[in-house]
Nucleic acid binder design. Structure first.
Lengths: 193, 193
DNA sequence: AAATTCTATTGATTTAAGTCAACAGAAAAT
DNA sequence: ATTTTCTGTTGACTTAAATCAATAGAATTT
């Protein structure tokens, strides 16, 4: 159950056997069936979730009633509404399992206690946040400069696993495109090969 | 010279008089004239800059030769290319003064030493990063859901100081719009009043 | 003071992506 | 097994914003 988590931590900071037991005592294992939610729009996001297995998305609904996918998270990734989690404000996002999932959950209290006990965990968290910030910056640049086709191709290159496992209309939503547009982009790409 | 910095720190964490002297010894004061750059595309970004006075922008140039404004920074804000700064990679961004500026610069070594000496500075930095991450998330959502007019109006509401001090075509660039579009949006808004 | 560059506006036209609608195979639910 | 829902495709048409081009006042530079 903790393989992916320890792998992720070891990629960024040192991790010894004693630490592992501490980690095990702070995370809450949780299974989620496909279509079940970890967070509902309007609720406070009380968990920072690590994905051991499966895939989830976070999304919000705009005033016109359209859903917008904000993030996908597969094995080895974290997912939460950071704003709601940190400030205990009501979330505008829903986090939903797209497949059956195995998660490891961390409450704010557990997170802080863990940072106290294992300083390297604080560094790990900071590195994650830095990477997430840089990735978001790249995503903004992408939406501002690329055509529909470029966006789709780059996503496929960066995260082939996600494009294969997620319905196409959710990929479209993540890219800020309509399903019809993604369908046409794919057709276009295929006829060029 | 340090008023804005101390004000910013005090808004987030505790700050005593001894700390102030430590801070003063680590930051490098730097004046920049309008149009001078703190970072040139292709160079490694070796400074994390705090703006005491003035206004700057960071931007990049895409393959088609179009400039895209990534960030503005006014008094009390930080600006850097975080990716280049952290990984010592060559930056794709240029950081340029839009007015004469007074900056306080922090090298990576000074930043780490400061975090060592003043643990509260690490917390302050983490809080800044969290806020920046949340703001970027909101910006992504905005570009995916809002019309040109909504983007312009919201920017004006959120940062009236920036819209007043920066040429309109840079506002357009920041919003992912063309100058002509912003001009038309403004006309539209005015005729409705 | 004159020349040059920068900035913003407006009009005419184009275009990338959106919208609306119909269809059909795949997957899930009963 | 057979409805029902989900998912992806395609065609016809619309639209928001981009593009191209001309203009002119403001700000800088010389």
């Amino acid at each position: 159950m903790f393989e992916q988590l320890f792998k992720s931590i070891q990629e960024k900071v040192t991790l010894n056997e004693d630490d592992k037991e501490v980690y095990k005592s702070f995370f809450i294992p949780k299974k989620l069936r496909k279509k079940q939610t970890l967070l509902q729009e309007g609720d406070v996001c009380i968990y920072n979730a690590f994905v051991e297995n499966g895939i989830l998305r976070s999304f919000f609904t705009d005033e016109k009633g359209n859903e917008h996918v904000v993030q996908f998270a597969i094995e080895g990734w974290w997912i939460t509404d950071l704003s709601s989690f940190l400030t205990k404000s009501n979330s505008i996002y829903t986090i939903e399992a797209l497949e059956d999932c195995e998660l490891l959950l961390l409450t704010m209290e557990a997170r802080e206690a863990l940072m106290d006990k294992i300083p390297m965990f604080e560094r790990y968290q900071r590195l994650l946040l830095q990477n997430a910030y840089i990735a978001n910056q790249a995503r903004i640049n992408s939406t501002l400069t690329e055509t529909a086709e470029e966006k789709y191709i780059k996503l496929g290159l960066a995260y082939p696993g996600i494009i294969k496992r997620v319905p196409q209309h959710m990929i479209a939503s993540y890219l800020g495109l309509k399903p019809e547009t993604v369908s046409r982009v794919r057709k276009q790409i295929n006829t060029r090969i």
